[in-house]
Amino acid sequence: MATVIIPTPLRKFTKNTARLEVKAGNIGDTIQQLTANFPDLKKHLLDEKGQVRSFVNIFIGNDDIRDLQQEKTVVKDDTVISIIPAIAGGI
């Protein structure tokens, strides 16, 4: 089972669980499982077209899936996936 690390601000939508295990073939399947199990996560991860929000980064280890095969990036049993909110702001 691959591991998904949920960032602190989204843990209230995963019953305060920080690490979830998923059985998925790629990142797209992983997101689908997460949002099926925790529907409140959906609007924080996906836009109205079902694409990963631009404010959300998904990393495998230290690599952004945008630099890999995006949502088709393969997930193995020992893969650790981090959901990372974009943190920015200013005047």
Binding site: T8, P9, L10, R11, K12, F55, I91
Partner: peptide, 27 residues
């Protein structure tokens, strides 16, 4: 991890629309 701090040089400590659009719940 309870939140983020940042500065507003030469401006008041009031969040901008830029701050709000990228803000996360809980933080």
């Amino acid at each position: 991890l309870l939140g983020i701090y940042h500065s507003h040089p030469k401006h008041p400590a009031i969040p901008s629309e830029t701050d709000r659009l990228s803000a996360q719940p809980f933080f």
